[in-house]
Design a protein around this nucleic acid. Structure first.
Length: 678
RNA sequence: UGAUCCAUGGUGUAACUGGCAACACGUCUGAUUUUGGUUCAGAAGAGUCUAGGUUCGAGCCCUAGUGGAUCAACCA
């Protein structure tokens, strides 16, 4: 069926196993079941890519089903946003479904359960019901209404449905087991009364099914074969199956629920509740703020569907708790944009550069490559003149050896233009640089083919002609939180970790005129700076660019490393360097010892003996306790012990025991070395 | 003080019914480069939480521990 050489995740293994056991592939069916009470985020993308990816892989239909069983929280706005985001990611659902489509069926099945004495109407307060429920460690007690006559429940349920009772006064409960170790089995509520307008059924209903009752039965109605959800629903599975048991017709397919771990991203939060809080407290500008991990936020930031799908693919699916590093997401978007983004030039922090030997009033048109990674991408025109802007950071009067940019007396290339040489600077009274004066070599124009134009210089700068530049606002973003897992702290709320500098607005950046025609979907690389895209806040007179992500910058890294470096490994240098190192070396070499033979083995053993010269007995003794199966480490320890004994170390009981255990080992080398010491 | 799930380099995932721990990101070298980008070549980094056991052989199986997560909404 599948010739895949690539590895499968555990969900795929389950499906392959089902297929191998005779489950017909054409009956495979999946679903993505969002509740329309918030926007989709990158964590949902994992589930979307999993379900729709499975659909593509097995040629199976995938339904989009809105889990709209709680009209007090759900809104049409969210339905629209969710559909937009999934479609934007490039997936197509087989059917657009709603749990509310099945309200009548669900109601009829509930009546059936009541008639079979498997459900009853309770009329206690939610507090009473909660207290009777017990705790995970203590069993619950039965409701006084648990054994009310079937007819009475039937009548009350009918009247609940007819709107005769106020919200909260009655509920329908499944009659299962108040002593079950699984809290979800302790007579779970199936229906409650809610007097709210539903976005689809309007005021047709005033009783609404709970998640557990609606979800599995909806899967059954749609004949979903594999109902995939996140781990926190694991405990619901027993109930999912119980509900199915009550209505299941063996001629039909029986859905099965399987659970995977939700995906977390470092330096952000991933729960709709918390994201909503960020929106409501105006910490961000909305669900689509470019700093948000929402699909719509990422889209506005400049992420592409390709990059998000690639990310989901690389991150994978499994069952353990995880915090995926944002750097993986950034890798994915850089990889995509590097291949597709149009190269342009823009200066964000300008300083004036005057080419003193370029004729005043003159200008010329140069060609700029659209994308060096794409042979057929062509070029566009960029005007050049005597007065330019370059980045302030690209100039230092005296740059030093490792500074590849412009400094006095040094040459650099202006990208796609000429080679220039720094000559002088003009400063104000405070010492701020106002202008840099340079000279250019007219023979060095890019692409002119002259020998001079082929000359190699250390650095290349981007630039923009002042007279021709257009202004734009540029918004740069940083992580929203300063902590890697802001919601993983018991003591502190996630809002305490907000990064106060997550947004940096540059009101006046200077762009080459080509950008005047930018449209919302365009992706640009501002050369040497990063990837940018137009923000919807742009209008006729005003361009606003979002920085999607910067280019990798090994230069910036070198410059910031000095102060940051030490926090990487704080715990190491407690002991004198050389001794610590020697023992480590011995362990390191020891680990691999059992994989070596002949000359290599001999060399390794000798270097262990050498390192042993620098080790004290006190350091070595703890290694005597090394687990029996870590033979290599034990051999290394034995060798080192030999060296110490030679140096006059007395044999104590620990040493004798260790040697004896070595002699009894099944490894030849270890036995031999132990013999030598006894 | 219960039930259930999880535990593999810094991070995320692999390793088909046991056979010398792989891939990606990240990190570090070097080369190329009219983007300190890209590309290319290479390196470091894990006896798979611990201790036992089964086996010729265990990351995979068993036992016991340890650590983490989840479960007590008329939310999903």
């Amino acid at each position: 069926m599948k010739e895949s050489a690539e590895s499968l995740n555990f969900i795929e293994h389950i499906i392959e196993e089902d297929l191998a056991n005779g489950f017909p592939q054409e009956k495979l069916r999946f679903r993505f079941p969002p509740e329309p009470n918030g926007y989709l985020h990158i964590g949902h993308a994992a589930s979307i890519c999993l379900n729709f990816g499975l659909g593509e892989k097995y040629q199976a239909p995938v339904n989009l089903r809105f889990d709209d069983t709680n009209p007090s929280k759900e809104e049409q706005e969210y339905v629209d946003a969710i559909k937009r985001d999934i479609a934007w990611l490039g997936f197509r659902w087989a059917n657009e479904c709603y749990a509310s489509d099945y309200f009548q069926q669900l109601h009829d099945w509930a009546v059936k359960l009541i008639k079979e004495d498997k459900a009853y109407v309770d009329q206690q307060t939610s507090e009473q019901i909660a207290s009777q429920k017990g705790t995970p460690t203590t069993p619950g007690v039965d409701s006084p209404y648990r054994n009310r006559p079937v007819e009475e429940s039937l009548d009350l349920f009918q009247r609940m449905k007819n709107g005769e009772f106020p919200a909260g006064s009655y509920v329908l409960r499944a009659k299962i087991d108040m002593a079950s170790p699984n809290m979800h089995m302790r007579d779970p509520i199936m229906y409650r009364i809610i007097n709210a307008h539903h976005h689809r059924t309007g005021n047709d209903w005033c009783i609404y099914p709970m998640y557990d009752w609606a979800h599995g039965e909806s899967d059954y109605v749609e004949q979903v074969s594999h109902s995939l959800c996140t781990l926190e629903f694991k405990a619901h599975r027993e109930l999912y199956d119980w509900y199915l048991d009550q209505i299941y017709d063996s001629n039909l397919l029986r859905p099965k629920q399987r659970e995977f771990a939700r995906r977390n991203l470092s330096y952000t939060v991933m729960s709709k509740r918390k994201l909503l809080e960020l929106v409501q407290k105006n910490i961000v500008s909305g669900w689509d703020d470019p700093r948000m991990p929402t699909i719509s936020g990422l889209r506005r930031r400049g992420y592409t569907p390709t990059s998000i799908r690639k990310f989901s693919d690389l991150a994978g699916i499994a069952k353990r708790d995880n915090v995926t590093d944002v750097s993986l997401l950034e890798f994915c978007i850089r990889e995509d944009l590097n291949k597709t983004a149009t190269r342009v030039m823009a200066v964000l922090n300008p300083v004036k550069l005057v080419i003193s030997n370029y004729p005043e009033g003159q200008s010329e048109i140069l060609q700029l490559e659209n994308n060096p990674e794409e042979a057929n991408s062509g070029t566009h025109e960029v005007p050049f003149s005597r007065e330019l802007y370059i980045e302030r950071e690209d100039f230092k009067e005296d740059g030093g050896k490792n500074f590849f940019r412009l400094s006095l007396g040094n040459e650099v290339r202006l990208k796609s233009a000429y080679i220039i040489k720094g000559e002088s600077v003009i400063k104000d009274d405070a010492g701020n640089i106002l202008e840099i004066h340079c000279t250019y070599d007219p023979e060095t124009r890019s692409g002119s083919g002259t020998e001079a134009s082929e000359r190699k210089v250390k650095g290349t700068l981007h630039w923009v002609s002042i007279a021709h530049a257009i202004k734009a606002e540029v918004r740069e973003y940083d992580r929203l939180f300063l902590d890697e897992a802001p919601d993983a702290h018991e003591e502190k709320g996630f809002l305490e970790f907000i990064n106060p500098n997550s947004l940096n607005v540059i009101k006046e950046a200077y762009c080459e005129p080509f950008l005047a025609n930018a449209t919302l979907d365009d992706k640009f690389q501002f050369q040497r700076l990063g990837y940018f895209t137009l923000d919807p806040d742009s209008n006729d007179g005003k361009l606003v660019f979002n920085k999607t992500v910067g280019l990798k910058d090994t230069w910036a890294k070198q410059n910031t490393q000095a102060p940051t470096q030490n926090q990487a490994k704080p715990q190491v240098q407690a002991q004198p360097q050389t001794q610590k190192k020697a023992l480590n070396e011995i362990q390191q070499i020891g680990k691999k010892l059992t994989n070596l033979s002949g000359e290599k083995l001999e060399t390794a053993m000798n270097s262990i003996r050498e390192f042993a010269e620098e080790v004290t007995y006190e350091e070595l003794e703890p290694l005597f306790g090394t687990a029996a199966k870590k033979t290599g480490t034990r051999i290394a320890t034995m060798l080192a012990l030999g060296v110490l004994l030679n140096k006059g170390q007395a044999k104590n009981q620990a040493i004798l025991d260790f040697i004896e255990s070595g002699k009894a080992d099944e490894n030849e080398i270890l036995r031999a070395e132990s013999e030598k010491l006894s």
